[in-house]
Design a protein around this nucleic acid. Structure first.
Length: 497
RNA sequence: GCAGCCGUAGCUCAGUUGGCUAGAGCGCCUGACUGUGGAUCAGGAGGUCAAGGGUUCGAGUCCCUUCGGCUGUACCA
């Protein structure tokens, strides 16, 4: 038997304190905003039946390739392909399970407004900042027909990003409406084609528009026509539209202007006589009205015809939160973070189960991706969870050190007692590396006098720059004061105030 | 999934047309500077050169395969 090699499966990873503490603090901030709007928490299983997730491929009789799926171990291996219980999968988002919950519990009070955080899994190629297991933090309102809920969702996204330290101008929420997309396809002569149908012209067109950010206008236009060859020589088949059709869609691609109402006017013209298109424009007008009334201007929420949000289940307004602040990474490269929030209205997701049309809207934040951006924004990070390290100079007095730390904790200071080995110098180094604010030193002399040395490590760090010699550094005992043991708590309180 | 590039110490990398015991900086550990972080100084640990196979007198260097990473492309709830 060979020894196992410690390793993680591709696209999976371990997360250590430095990142994890930032993540947890961020989650707290997001949760506070969601609760301020009255959302309630929900938890659902990581594993769902594949047909519930809507990722079952009836033609092949197997689950979609993009998900982690497996056979139901409760079922006999010879269970027929048609058995809906046969396949299980890890959830790939939190919206599909939400739809299941709404369909399953008929007595849920509606509107049902819930927030949910959790890991989701996708079986796809990992990339930088892209993993096969990652965290999403969603909020959704179920049972809300009007555009007010969509406008509110945009406000929530703004509030979250601002609570996390992004200012107006550091981010933008781009909003579009699937009904407008549908209307434009309609007037371009692509109406009868089902968007969802694989290989349909309509779906090819939507995919092309979705690539605007990456390929630019010219690239999209190529994909609307014959197709596009990339720099490696790879060829992507286009939608093969007529020149007149492409012309209409080009006008659509150019419809974005700064003012939301002006975008609506332009889109109204492009959508022409299509009823569904007109409906979409009206939804955007409503959203604009609400946002304007609430003081969310186009510097924070803009209307952008380019937004598609994949071929997903969206039925009306769709939106994405994008970080626009240019962020410079360790190697000095400017990095674009792109979309961190994604969401929209999905009025047919519950209908799949019960036949009842239940309107719903919401959004999802990619926690890990947003965290990456935040790390680069304020590079400074602290790994310590405690503020105070009680050093143990005299191991014989360990009981006294433990008791002292207990006193500090009762007074509200997160405190660690150094229980490793090593002299005082090593202990202070440890405190310094982990980012402790204070070190408390009590040796034989101090015990005799009933005092403690309290060192402010942050202050000392600042002073270190101006100190040249070792003599000076040590003699100066930078940022260190002698405090009677009885006054220790008051001193720490005072220093933190 | 497809295509191209890459894989040498914990990290960033060097390693000449294949040629002695594979190196540096940073980090880490130990110690000195009388019981004190930084700086400085002196030591030390750490590599089956991603893994496996092949060519060769000889492979970190050349060839094949696998795994992993990056870039582009496809898909993306």
């Amino acid at each position: 038997m060979t020894a196992p090699v410690p390793r993680c499966f591709r696209g999976f990873r371990d997360v250590f304190a430095g990142d994890l503490l930032l993540k947890q603090r961020m989650i707290e901030t997001v949760r506070a905003v969601y609760e301020r709007y009255g959302f309630l928490p929900l938890e659902t299983p990581a594993v769902e039946f594949v047909d519930v997730l809507g990722k079952f491929l009836p033609e092949a009789g197997t689950p979609d390739g993009g998900i982690f799926s497996f056979r139901n171990p409760d079922l006999s291996p010879t269970a027929p392909d048609g058995d809906p219980d046969r396949w299980l999968a890890l959830r790939y988002d939190l919206t599909a399970p939400l739809a299941r919950v709404v369909a399953q519990y008929a007595d849920l009070q509606r509107p049902f407004r819930r927030y949910q955080i959790g890991s989701v899994w996708r079986y796809e190629k990992p990339g930088p900042g892209r993993f096969r297991e990652f965290t999403q933090f969603d909020f959704d309102s179920v049972g809300v027909p009007g555009s007010a809920a969509d406008a509110e969702a945009c406000c929530i996204i703004c509030d979250v990003l601002e609570a996390l330290g992004f200012g107006a101008g550091d981010y933008i929420i781009n909003v579009n409406d699937r009904k407008i997309l549908q209307g434009v396809l309609e007037v371009s002569g692509l109406a009868e084609t089902d968007i969802g149908a694989e290989g349909s012209q309509a779906s090819t067109v939507l995919r092309a528009i979705d690539k605007f950010d990456r390929l630019g206008r010219a690239g999209v236009v190529q994909l609307l026509g014959r197709g596009r060859k990339d720099e490696t020589g790879d060829f992507t088949e286009g939608a093969h539209l007529e020149p007149s059709q492409i012309e209409k869609l080009e006008a659509y691609l150019d419809a974005k202007v700064a003012s939301r109402s002006a975008v609506c006017d332009r889109l109204a013209g492009l959508v022409g006589s299509s009823p569904i298109g007109a409906e979409g424009v009206q939804e955007l007008r409503d959203i604009d009205r609400y946002l304007t009334a609430l003081g969310y201007g186009s510097d924070r929420v803009a209307f952008d015809p380019i937004v598609v949000r994949g071929l997903a289940y969206y039925t009306g307004p769709v939106f994405e939160g994008v970080l626009t602040k240019s962020i410079v990474d360790e190697s000095g490269q400017a990095r674009q973070f792109g979309s961190v929030y994604g969401g929209g209205r999905y009025d047919t997701l519950v209908e799949r189960f019960t036949g009842e049309r239940v309107p719903a809207t919401g959004a999802s934040v990619g926690v890990d991706r947003l965290l990456e951006a935040m790390k680069l924004l304020d590079g400074a990070r602290r790994t310590a969870t405690a503020q105070v390290l009680v050093t143990t100079m005299d191991k014989e007095r360990t009981a006294d050190y433990l008791a002292l730390a207990q006193q500090l904790r009762r007074a509200g200071f997160a405190t660690e007692v150094y229980l490793g080995k090593g002299a005082i110098g090593k202990q202070l180094k440890y405190a310094d590396k982990l980012g402790y604010r204070f070190a408390v030193i009590v040796g034989g002399d101090e015990f005799a006098q009933g005092v403690a040395q309290v060192k402010d490590l942050q202050l000392g760090k600042q002073m270190a720059d101006s100190v040249g010699s070792r003599e000076e550094w040590r003699k100066g005992q930078p940022a260190q004061v002698t405090i009677p043991l009885g006054g220790l708590i008051d001193h720490l309180r005072g220093s933190l105030a």
